[in-house]
Nucleic acid binder design. Sequence first.
RNA 1: GGGGCGGUAGUUGAGUUGGUUACAACAACGGCCUGUCACGCCGUAGGUCACGGGUUCGAGUCCCGUCCGCCUCGCCA
Length: 601
Amino acid sequence: MSEFLNGFKRTHTCGDLRGTDVGKTVRLVGWVQDYRNLGGFLFIVMRDRYGITQIHVDAGSPLFEQASKIRAEWVIGVEGKVISRGKDANQKLATGEIEVDATELRIFNRAETAPFAIHDRCDADEKIRLKYRYLDLRRPCLNRNIIMRSQITRIIRRVLEDHNFLDLETPVLGKSTPEGARDYLVPSRVQPGKFYALPQSPQLFKQLYMISGFDRYYQIARCFRDEDLRLDRQPEFTQIDMEMSFIEPEDIQNICEEMICTIFHEVLNIDLPRPFKRISWDESMDRFGVDAPDIRFGMELNNVTEIFRNTEFKLFAAALENKQGTIRAISVPASVKLSRKDIEQSLGDVAKTYGAKGLAWTKMTNGALDAGIAKQLSDTEKAALIDMLKPEEGGTLLFVADKLNIARNALGRVRKEIAVRNNWVPKVMTKTEDVGLTWVTDFPMFEWSDEDNRWYAMHHPFTSPRSSDWPAFEAGDLGNVYAQAYDLVLNGIELGGGSIRIHNIDVQKKVFAALGIGDAEARAKFSFLLDALSFGAPPHGGLAFGLDRMVMLLSGADSLRDVIAFPKTNKATDLMTEAPGDVDDKQLDELYIKTVMPEEQ
RNA sequence: GGGGCGGUAGUUGAGUUGGUUACAACAACGGCCUGUCACGCCGUAGGUCACGGGUUCGAGUCCCGUCCGCCUCGCCA
């Protein structure tokens, strides 16, 4: 290769040439983006990831015959003189900005016709894009996301290392733990019948680093969860994982704020005010219906339950018969035109998706509530609604009457849907107002599951309860125990979350017990953690950001797939490598694994 | 596990109530052109309409099943 490339090591990039003087000799390597044989001369548009440059070959040149064979996507090297720059007097150059008159031209590699055009639009069928991912990645629209990703991790490392964080590694082959997501399992050959699990997060290892005395840890860590995929969920993803000792939540939050501000400043040239907003989980659920609120617009939820406590309106009365029954409402401004069809079908479907039976509605017309459910409401109820919700003339009131968690969530999703449809919230952030950042704090420690008839940890079982809730915890009133946990939410999407951890072995045992994890099971699954806690663990806590989501939001990408170089499909396959694939029986034998396909069972 | 949308030339799409030889643009290939820059003009080639059944005189079109991609509910401490 070196001989082949002899004399053609790149000395300039296409982008570099912008300021180059006419007459200067330059040397470039890259791909052919376009070519045009005009008989008497030839244009070749050459491209690398820094820019494009136009190459000129004259008919009289000995290079002409060779150059005329060149086609799109061939890899070439060119040496020549800059003959014109940018928009010079004759206005002949617009795109390439620089034109180079070739004196030497080498073809390093030919290329098949690409299955899709390598231009700055990610427009082909995603199946084909994923199969030829290396070509898709050449396209600037994808290429720049990957570059931004590197830019962001560089900033993160710089900020954290300036604060004396150590980049420390944790094992990838670990132990499967109960709770949480489904693990990716790796069979052990040396220990027949036993399995490693790939980490869902480095959670316990980073806590052990704290106990080991490394009081500031970070890692850009790959994590794995074997659950169904979504637009914003891949089976392997990357966390910015951090942990500190001897801290309060504000300490880690301050460092995160500095990190986020630096990223926004350097990547998007947006300056964010500090400190970030803070809102408790209870308040977020009450005002926005969700635990990751988009705070860039109003139209908040209202609790109108008491107005209808003794209502004659059957729909609402029926919902309130349930102990957890509630009625929540939003007041949609008049600028949003909603037809009956919009409400009952389109937005109603959004509500139904999240478990509600539908949307109740009414409109403010000539100073009174009219249409929809209005004629079934009493005058007192209507007056109370107008007083509380202050509907605009021509505005709409939307209601969900259901169990608390369904009503809040469904109406919260409808709220966001209306904002998206009416372009209240830009996808690409260009100024400070486009950024809705808030901490959500004081999450409930436990979450009751009707289905499993038990409590689950809302964050994870190593999260510390608030000390003020200790009496409630001791009393077994788990629904009223809050955790020292906090999420950072950007534009309605959870960017990251963390907590202060339990550093006391007795507390940890009691939390396990509350989750139905008995002493024996706790010992079997977490003996190393319990042992470690027994040797004097410092108070500690941390946070983890989803790097992929962060890049997705900052780049304005439509999907996590557009910020991961080699992503998986909805069914967790890689269309390029065709992973996962079959393995030889011999490999399975060594692992003592026999596969039984469903039809053979 | 459930729901929705989609699969037609290399690519992106059109294809009406089922009806002759499945259409266009771009790309490719050949020719022409000395200043293009979404270049232009002329021509050529390119199809198992995802796959398998069914209904019908006749299916890209209607029905059933399967596969694949995307969105989504459940799931994701």
